[in-house]
């Protein structure tokens, strides 16, 4: 429920911001975004109100219990992967599509390595990825003539 409260408050702020930002636009340009922003604020208020009802508290108690038993997701890897993904997209232009993708891919595979994967398995995975990605890049670039960024390398 604390989650929901946070979500509601964030979205209320977001909606108010959109409403204010729209003030600068012409009458017909701001009508729609302002109506939607208002709806967003009202709906978020409803969500906020719901977190205070008795039913919500009961549901929360049930959820807490359930969560204790559930498997713990590996959030550390998620964080690392997100960082690698961000680097991946930012390096596309400077390094080139192919190079950036290969590097980031290899890094990601190593990061995601599970307990039952030995070094050989990791290398096999990287290799498979390299083959597939190279094939894709070649098809896009040469056959379909899509101008993927070439950057410093390729």
């Amino acid at each position: 429920m604390r989650n929901n409260r946070l979500v509601a408050l964030t979205l209320i702020a977001f909606g108010l911001f959109a409403w204010l930002e729209s003030q600068r636009y012409g009458a017909l340009s701001r009508l729609f975004p302002q109506v939607v922003a208002l709806a967003l604020v009202v709906l978020s208020l409803v969500l906020l109100a719901q977190t205070f009802t008795a039913r919500a508290r009961r549901a929360e108690a049930v959820r807490r219990e359930g969560r204790a038993e559930a498997e713990k997701p590996d959030l550390r890897s998620v964080g690392l992967s997100v960082l690698i993904m961000i680097a991946w997209t930012l390096l596309l232009e400077p390094l080139g599509f192919w190079t950036a993708s290969l590097l980031a891919f290899a890094l990601l595979v190593v990061t995601l390595r599970t307990r039952d994967q030995d070094a050989a398995a990791v290398w096999k995975t990287v290799l498979a990825g390299v083959v597939l990605m190279t094939a894709f890049v070649l098809v896009f670039r040469i056959t379909l003539r899509v101008p993927l960024p070439t950057g410093l390398f390729w």
């Binding site: 390299v130 190279t134 070649l138 390729w154």
Partner: peptide, 18 residues
């Protein structure tokens, strides 16, 4: 054979680019 093929592909791509 597969691995050789891949290596060849990579080399070709790099060579072409260079």
């Amino acid at each position: 054979v597969w691995r050789l093929g891949v290596a060849l592909l990579v080399i070709l791509a790099i060579a072409g680019q260079t």
